[in-house]
């Protein structure tokens, strides 16, 4: 447990909280880069995913690209771009954007695809324009899944940004690599704990957002469905009268 004592000592050392390379500065750097990367990646991936999901065209290549990119080792991409572009911020930013696109793209098209085609058909039948269908029907209904994509992309960006400190001088990852170099496990672990807390806080924020993103009508239906599930089988026609209670089956 004294490893944690070391980490705590490092975390509470006032010297680490002021000046260049201090904890607050690194946190802000980390969040700032993550936000910039997320905005750029989202600006590329979300509209693309929406178009794919809405039209159903280009789905196969999108699945292949987002699946294929997932196999891409992040460290390899980071180091390769760093060799090409030098040790500035460009390399990690570009690498991070590329790596953030698959989950965003997948979330967007999966979200749009998840919308019941009959609902879209009905919207068209009552006279909505395509733009209105996207804005008033597909987008609200797909929002939970799209936000889910943004959530996992953000987590990935935060994680990869930590790793990016290997090739560039920014973010909380610096503490980890500095600690590795000087064999200071307290600093390494302290930096890791900061990263973990940051990721969990951001993830918690998204969990909340995702819950709020569910349209009220859908939420109501879902609750009803859950209650029904809890009370037994959902297929009433198979069971006449009362649902069969689990305990009786064995």
């Amino acid at each position: 447990m004294n490893l944690f004592v070391d980490a705590l000592a490092w975390l509470t050392d006032p010297a680490n909280w002021t000046g260049a390379g201090s904890i607050p500065q690194r946190i802000i750097e980390h969040l700032w880069i993550s936000a910039v990367v997320l905005v750029i990646a989202a600006a590329i991936a979300l509209p693309l995913g929406g178009v794919i999901g809405h039209t159903g065209r280009g789905r196969e290549p999108a699945v292949m690209v987002s699946g294929g990119l997932r196999a891409l080792p992040t460290l390899g991409v980071l180091t390769l771009f760093a060799l090409w572009l030098g040790i500035g911020l460009q390399a990690p930013v570009i690498a991070l954007v590329i790596l953030a696109i698959p989950p965003l793209l997948a979330g967007a098209y999966a979200g749009f695809e998840s919308v019941d085609r009959r609902t879209v058909d009905a919207a068209r039948a009552v006279g909505m324009r395509e733009v209105q269908i996207v804005g008033k029907v597909e987008l609200p209904l797909s929002l939970p899944i799209v936000v889910g994509g943004i959530r996992s992309a953000t987590l990935q960006i935060i994680a990869t940004a930590t790793l990016a400190a290997y090739v560039s001088d920014f973010g909380l990852g610096r503490f980890i690599f500095a600690g590795l170099k000087t064999r200071d496990y307290g600093e390494m672990l302290g930096g890791s704990l900061l990263v973990i807390i940051l990721a969990l806080v951001v993830d918690g924020g998204f969990a909340l957002t995702q819950r709020l993103a569910v349209p009220a009508g859908v939420r109501a239906a879902r609750t009803a469905e859950n209650t029904e599930l809890r009370s037994g089988p959902t297929r009433p026609r198979a069971v006449v009268g009362r649902p069969i209670i689990e305990g009786n089956q064995e």
Binding site: T162, I196, A199
Partner: peptide, 28 residues
Amino acid sequence: RWSRGVLLSLCALLYAIPSLALFIALPA
């Protein structure tokens, strides 16, 4: 059903932890 929320939330938490940080924190 009661275990579902707990188990899946734990998994989501675990999933949210950046890998490098986990690699370093685990030996502790």
